[in-house]
Design a protein around this nucleic acid. Sequence first.
DNA 1: GCATTAATTGGTC
DNA 2: GACCAATTAATGC
Length: 236
Amino acid sequence: MPNNYSCSNCKNSNCLIRKHYDSESIQSFIKEKTAFRCNAEQQFILEGTPVSGLYFIYEGNVKVYRETANRESQIIRLSKDGEIVGHRGFGTNYKYDISASALSDCVLCHFPTETLIEMLHKKPELMFDFMLFYADQLQKSEANAKRFSRMSVKDKVINGLLFIYHKFGQTEGIFNITLSRKDIADFAGTAPDQVARVISSLKKEGFINAKGRKLGLAKPDELEESLGEDGYFLEG
DNA sequence: GCATTAATTGGTC
DNA sequence: GACCAATTAATGC
């Protein structure tokens, strides 16, 4: 590899490839991996495009989304270091059914489909980890579907903010991820102006920190309690 | 600093 | 609660 984004330098303990990369049997496959930089806002998977393989986030934050006919978009997942992107299309689909863009400057690793398939056959432990991963994703996506029905706009937004808080954390009271109001809206399943309203009311109640456009939670625990019994969910 | 773009607020259905 | 318009704030150059 021409750069230093090799698996041996990788610090993502949650990466499935990283976990098995010492194994002799898959060395030759790992050499086929390509790593590349992706600037913030840049799209690297376009819905409807032929599946080329699987992406792993070496570094950075990414959004996975789908665009509807009238140019509305729905964020399906927010992903960070070590996570897999494009797995829905892997194996069976000919085309990607989602789009993906970088939310920050990223480094992405890419494995061609054939390479990965051969590698999975060569290394049953890796195959097993992938199976667990897919099962977990399925479970989460079902939990996710539950959330979307019957929840007020305010709760959707609060839920989204709590999710961001838990997944990405915050430093000095500000989220470790940059999201526009539109991104938050697309993630929570509402419109940006609704998000703005909820945020401004939360600000008045002292639940939110703001630095310019960036946000953070001031009292996450209390905010979490303010959601009803079945309000909060955790997904990965 | 200024121009561009995003966020916010208010109003209407 | 969705949609639109006007104002205001933040950011990039």
